[in-house]
Computed example of a mutant assay.
Amino acid sequence: MQTTVLIVDDEPDIRELIRLYLANEGYRVLEAADGREALELTRKHEIDLMILDVMMSGMDGMETCAKIRERQWMPIIMLTARTGDLDKIQGLAVGADDYVTKPFNPLELVARVKSQLRRYKRYANAFTLQTNLLSIGGVTLHPEMRQVWVRGQPVHLTPREFDILALLFRHPGVVFRSEEIYERVWGEPMLTSNNTIMVHIRKIREKIEDDPKNPAIVLTVWGVGYKAAADSHPVRHD
């Protein structure tokens, strides 16, 4: 799967410069002109790394980084025209992984991108070996093996059903709108209102819930969307 990098900067020329260098290295590149647009893109796409400008109008880079860290842990490289140590310390404190000062050498930035992705991949692989199972209320899911068990018994889910359940299990207690689930799982916007997600949720419940009409694992938040029960926990895999 192609690695996706999100560039967040209110200067189009800066975004274009970075995009050209990253695209030349084979990365898929998304762009945002401000923090709010960046947050929206992280909800719609799987982002592997973010390059985030500090000084932007509206929601600046510091606030954007802090909000990203409430839900996601992709590497974040912050860009800034400031050179003071206090600004760097503040950026690292809110969750940034690296700091690059403008003006910058694009080749150095690409090298830092590669370094951060390697580090996160090593961390993710080590973490996956220890905690690669997710369990809620007797339902256990293995994301990499794409298998599901209900109280130890294997259950067959279709690919779409599995992807929906995996999304909810990875974010226990987080409510996802139907449109957001569709965009993440199908990888495209849901252009019209339909009951596709509702039908898939019903089929998932029929396969994993003790009482599908009174679910305890995949919950409906009326008027908003769906969530997994918040008692999810990783199961050690030795």
Rank of each mutant, 00 (worst) to 15 (best):
E183M: 03
E31I: 08
L39I: 06
D210S: 13
G26L: 07
L49F: 05
V224S: 07
G223K: 06
I197P: 01
L109E: 04
E46T: 13
G35T: 09
G137I: 06
Y27A: 05
A230R: 06
A228E: 01
T64W: 01
F104R: 01
D210I: 03
M62P: 06
A216Y: 07
I51S: 07
Q153E: 09
D48P: 00
A96Y: 06
A228C: 01
S135F: 05
V54T: 14
K102Q: 03
G138V: 00
L117D: 09
N214I: 05
I136E: 04
R15T: 12
R82T: 04
G137S: 15
K121T: 15
A216R: 14
M74C: 13
L20Y: 07
L49C: 11
T192R: 09
T140W: 08
Y123E: 15
D211N: 14
P215G: 09
I197T: 00
I7N: 12
L191E: 13
I14R: 00
A111P: 01
K88Y: 09
H156N: 13
L117K: 05
L157W: 06
M1P: 04
G84S: 04
P143Y: 10
I7Q: 03
E179W: 04
A124L: 11
Q90V: 04
E40F: 04
R236F: 02
M62T: 13
T64K: 07
I201P: 12
I204G: 00
I208N: 02
Y182L: 03
T80E: 11
L22S: 12
M1F: 09
G84R: 05
I136S: 13
K102I: 02
A33V: 12
I18Q: 03
S115I: 06
K213P: 07
K67S: 10
P215F: 04
P103K: 10
T42S: 08
E108L: 01
M55D: 01
V110L: 13
T140M: 14
R112W: 02
K121F: 03
D60T: 01
D60V: 00
G26W: 04
F176E: 10
G152Y: 11
H156Y: 06
F176A: 06
V29S: 11
E25R: 11
W149F: 07
N105R: 14
G26P: 05
I89R: 05
E25A: 05
I77N: 08
I208P: 01
Q2K: 08
G35H: 11
R69H: 02
P154N: 03
A33F: 05
H142R: 10
G187P: 12
K207V: 00
I76W: 01
M56V: 04
T140L: 10
K213V: 06
K67R: 15
G91E: 08
T83P: 02
R28A: 15
A66R: 15
L141V: 11
K227Q: 14
A126K: 13
N194C: 10
A38H: 15
N125M: 13
E179S: 08
L30P: 02
Q130D: 10
R118Y: 08
W149A: 03
T128K: 03
E144W: 01
L141T: 01
P159Q: 12
F169I: 00
A93Y: 09
W73M: 09
R118T: 02
D34G: 07
R151G: 00
E188G: 06
